[in-house]
Structure formats: structure tokens, C-alpha cells
Design a protein around this nucleic acid. Structure first.
Lengths: 228, 228
DNA sequence: TTCATAAGTCGTCAATTGACGACTTTGCGC
DNA sequence: GCGCAAAGTCGTCAATTGACGACTTATGAA
């Protein structure tokens, strides 16, 4: 941890070899360098948390720390852009509509959806960043992602009930809880894979199939329990 | 964020009123002061992450920062003790044996167990600390808690199968995945309550009952799917 | 009352960290 | 080749942060 000498603070000559930085340090046009910084920042913040240092990021990019500030006024601004493009972005790319495609059985729709969702959204980078962000935000203000997930749980339950010919006479909050049983358990599967480093043996498709299966087969019992 | 003046660094005279520190700053005997620091440290690290500062902790305790070092050699040591006593501790207090009490139906056993588990383990403090710790640890070494949870999922599945008179001819990893469907979905319920600030309306007991219900009713289908 | 000792504070140090003014280097259009 | 704008670096500043030596103060047993 301790530095070897007293006064070599900011002068690590030739920082190209530091970390995993690339060699061949060529000059990059504005847009490219900016994209590179965003990419590396995503990696860094996902791995070491939102408190990761700008100097580490610069080293990762193979540039001086000062140059970061040509692209982002403050670390806070960088953080915000990482969140917007790497958390919100992939989330918006998800095709939720397919869950309502009644020409296909619910089992198939759910399997397809969650296979995609795990690949597109619930990857290591996304999950770690999302958790770090969620833990950090003090305000309990409901955000964009929560609102979409809430709508998602609602869709899943209503579509399932429709396929089974079941009427739902219950509180909207109860409906959400039913939807959360599958969405939560699959999200937690991602968490234990990427955060706890568990559940690495059984194939992802098999796990999804299992979760869809338990949801569809336990659905009626849940409805009975929560119906009012 | 910026301080008002230049040189009032470490001299916030009368730091008793800062933060939520108590008044009546009486002297405390060693053991009591130590316990107080541990308690406040748990709060602080749970709320602001493992990077929370020793000065903030001192302020919270209503003591000088220097005094902390009379009880803990380094921040690292304090962190370790918080983890051991506040993460491992409550976990060890859980009574897993009741899950194997075959004189009571599985439904009752699971409901009872997870009600207790949510209260004893999956509270806000525990969860946030656990997540911060899990995100921070770089090594993928399986730890104490993972091994217990693995055993737990195994017990749940085997006890359920026994009650239903089902034989389990499958990979141990597949058995764990079945157990994870209920343990994961209830853990995720705690996460969304304490981290995402969602799922606050439906009562905890009702949610547990719902998760137990979907697990028991979907159990057979899961086994069929994963059986080899 | 005395005073040894446990409890507690002051002030400071070195390292870290976000931020930035002043400067240097590169390479493209002419 | 020339020049100039874009790309990039150096060195530094102020604040923060973990750590600690030297000191002060309270308290209870004799």
C-alpha cells in the first residue's frame, strides 16, 4: 500500500504499462477518446464501486488524469453519463412487448424474455453498477427503472391469468408481489452469479426454465392465497 | 460541499451536536465505549458503505477521532469485527434445524423459518452491509455464509421431496437450484424492500406465504424438469 | 485530599484525491 | 514545409482521510 519513496506523487513516468492499459498510445479524436473513457469508466465503477478514482481511470485509458476533464467537467458528470448510457440504456433496449404476444404460450414467452433479459440487462457490469448505484442513492424517490419493472410484473401476471382463464380480484400491490416471485428469483439468480459467484454449474437456460416452471405451476395457488 | 473557510480543518469545536451524536458526553468504561463504537460503525458502514470515514464515525459517537484508535488498531480491524459480529453473528443465531422437523408440515416449517429469517437476518442493516461486503470482495473464495446457504437449499429440497414422497435423481447442483427458487425470491424481496425501497405495502407474512405457496405447488414440475 | 490511571483530546503528518491553469506535442489543411 | 487547432501532459492546489505522538482531564481507591 505504501509508496516506495516520498515525492514521486504524480510522476509515474510512462503510465502506459500501468494496469491493463494498451500500448501504442496514439492520439484519438474527441469522440473516440470520449467513448473509450466511458467504456473504461463503466468497467472501473462496476468493479470497484462509484468511489473508484479518476487517476485509476486515466491509467486504465493510458492517458493523463488531466485529460479526463476535457471530456467531463466533474467526476459526478461522468458518473451520471455512465449511469444513463450503461444502466438505463440497455434497459430501454429490452423488448417488453413480446410478453403480451398471445399467439404464443406464456411458458414460451417467459422463457424467451428472461433468456434475453439475463443476457441484455442482468450481466456482471450492469448488475454491479446497478447495485452500487442503488446502495448509494439516499432518496427513496421512485426512479425510472422501478416504474418499468412494476409495469413488467403487472403484465406478466395479467398475461398468465388470461392464458389460464383466471380472474384477478385483488389489490394491484398483490398482483405486483405475484409477478415479483418470478422476476425477483431470476434477478437473484443473476446476483448470486455475478456478486456471490455461486450458481455457475447448471446452464442458464435450464435455470430460467426451472423458474418459469415453478411460477406457472404455482400461479393458481398464489392467486388463491392473495385473492380478496 | 466546500468548507466555508480555509483553516478550520480539524477544529470543529464541540462536536457533540454534529450529526446524531448524543449530548451528556459522559466518560464510558472501555467495554461500553467499544460496544457503542461497534454499534455506530455498523450503522454507518451499512448506510454509507465500507468507505465511510472514521471522522464521521467519531462524530456519531460524540468522541474524538483519535479515541477510535484506542479500541481498534486500524479501520480494517474495525471493519472485520463489524463483519464478524453483525453479519456472521445473526446468521449463526438462525435455527436451521426446525426445517427438518418432520412432525410439522413443510408449508408450516417454511413459513415459520422465513418469517424468522427475514426478521433476524434479512433486515436493512444486515442486507446493506452484506451487499457492500460482497461487492467489495475481489476473491471468489467460497465463504462461510455461502456454504451454509448451500446446505440450507439442499435441506429444503430434500425435506419437501420427502413430504411429497418424491425421489430425487439429479445432480446436487440441480437440487441447489430448486432450493434457490424460494431462497432467492425471498432474499430478493428483502433486497427490494431495503435497497430499492419497493414492496412495502403487502404484509411480510403474506409475501412469505405467497413465496412458500408457489414453491410447494411448483415443486413437482421443477423436479420433473431437472430430473435426469 | 491525593494521585495513579483510565478516558479522552489536540494538533499534526503523509498519502490520497478531485480539480485545474499553464504548457507542450501532434498532425492535418493549405 | 508551415502554422494552428486539437490532443495531450505537467505540476500543483486544497480538501480529505487514516493514523498517531504528546498531552490533558476525570474519577475512585487509599
Amino acid at each position: 500500500m505504501k509508496a516506495k519513496s516520498t515525492s514521486l506523487r504524480g510522476s509515474q513516468r510512462g503510465n502506459e504499462q500501468a494496469g491493463t492499459a494498451k500500448k501504442k498510445s496514439k492520439r484519438l479524436p474527441y469522440a473516440e477518446r470520449r467513448a473509450q473513457i466511458l467504456e473504461k469508466a463503466t468497467e472501473l465503477f462496476a468493479e470497484y464501486g462509484l468511489t473508484a478514482q479518476t487517476r485509476a481511470l486515466a491509467a486504465e485509458c493510458g492517458i493523463s488524469q488531466r485529460l479526463l476533464y476535457r471530456f467531463f467537467p466533474t467526476k459526478e458528470d461522468l458518473l451520471k453519463e455512465v449511469y444513463d448510457t450503461r444502466i438505463i440504456g440497455p434497459f430501454q433496449a429490452v423488448w417488453f412487448a413480446e410478453l403480451s404476444d398471445r399467439s404464443r404460450p406464456m411458458s414460451e414467452r417467459l422463457n424467451k424474455f428472461y433468456k434475453d433479459y439475463l443476457d441484455t440487462v442482468l450481466g456482471r457490469r450492469w448488475l454491479r453498477l446497478f447495485l452500487y448505484s442503488s446502495l448509494a442513492e439516499a432518496d427513496m424517490a421512485p426512479n425510472y427503472i422501478s416504474s418499468i419493472i412494476t409495469k413488467l410484473t403487472e403484465t406478466i401476471v395479467q398475461e398468465t391469468a388470461h392464458e389460464k382463464g383466471i380472474a384477478l380480484n385483488m389489490d394491484p400491490e398483490a398482483i405486483h408481489e405475484i409477478g415479483w416471485t418470478i422476476h425477483g428469483s431470476i434477478s437473484h439468480y443473476a446476483i448470486r452469479r455475478h456478486i456471490y459467484h455461486a450458481s455457475q454449474v447448471v446452464s442458464q437456460d435450464m435455470v430460467v426454465a426451472t423458474h418459469v416452471s415453478v411460477f406457472l405451476n404455482g400461479f393458481d395457488a398464489m392467486v388463491s392465497q392473495l385473492d380478496s
